[in-house]
Design a protein around this nucleic acid. Sequence first.
DNA 1: TGCTTATATAAGTGATTTATTATATGATTA
DNA 2: TAATCATATAATAAATCACTTATATAAGCA
Lengths: 109, 109
Amino acid sequence: MEQKIQEMAEAYKLLADKTRLTIVALLKEQELCVCDITDIIGMSQPNASQHLRKLKAAGLLNEKKRGQWVYYSLNPDAEAYVQCVYPYLPSMKAKIAGLKNCCGPQEEA
Amino acid sequence: MEQKIQEMAEAYKLLADKTRLTIVALLKEQELCVCDITDIIGMSQPNASQHLRKLKAAGLLNEKKRGQWVYYSLNPDAEAYVQCVYPYLPSMKAKIAGLKNCCGPQEEA
DNA sequence: TGCTTATATAAGTGATTTATTATATGATTA
DNA sequence: TAATCATATAATAAATCACTTATATAAGCA
């Protein structure tokens, strides 16, 4: 029981940061590469990279390498107590639409 | 949109602490006074008091004074993106049952 | 092979946070 | 009124965290 609460607290710690929560909200729309995410949020690349690593380490994100780009997406198998908050995240469609189509969601070659 | 994400992040920050999340799990069962909470969790009284204050300030808890005791309970009007996680919290019935019935849930006199 | 682009890692710094100790408030009871 | 019990507040110390700067890796391209 305490173990479960500990795990939940650690997961919510990841969602307890404006930057990471924005990343999750973005990826709710579609998968994105690191450069898209940094562009949209307007943050440094190392900063994005570190947040993405944490989210991935905790099982919230999946990572897929394609050419020189790394695409991140929401992990549909993440814990239910994490996924239950996703529906409350505001839509990021507008932000994503503003992307200069540098490397949006790619079809498998 | 960024405002909403900011608010959500701040709320999850409150749930991102093992102690506070345990308090919420306890109050999911029933209202409790500060001394009950400190007994069950085994923490110092000032520590409990400060966590309770934060949770209350953010609208997660209600407070009701009765004699020299202060009873805390979950606020049923808390934001939906907070309440959606409550069902995933483990049951605390066993912990609460172990209370020496010092000041459990009281009827209005 | 060298250059560029995309991403990751490492180290350092400043800010935030948790818990403790000490003290204050406020209600109850002797 | 004095003593006690329940709770709150304040100040501080220790730990954690986010972000920056600098550097490393690794893929694509000239």
